[in-house]
Amino acid sequence: MMFEVLQIVVPILTVAAAIVAVYFRDLLSATIALAAMSLLLSMEFYILQAPDVAIAEAGVGACLTTAILIFSIKATKRMEDEK
């Protein structure tokens, strides 16, 4: 029962985090939403019994990508331009 609930809840949260990351105007918030999506995706990999991929996803996607994106935001602009 617990397994089925997690199988339904975690992908929905992943997709919600991805949609939120697209709609943010503040790029720093979008980066944090992307990190949350990556962490939820690694949890989904763990539920599907692929712990190797889960560790790689959590290390690279949730930490290093976030650090690199934050450094590049610091060098450019924080807010996205209006059209």
Binding site: P51, D52, I55, G59, C63, L64, A67
Partner: peptide, 16 residues
Amino acid sequence: PGGGFQGGAIVASGCA
């Protein structure tokens, strides 16, 4: 579970 790439990514995360 894990290996060279996964552990290396974790250590590099600590350095970051």
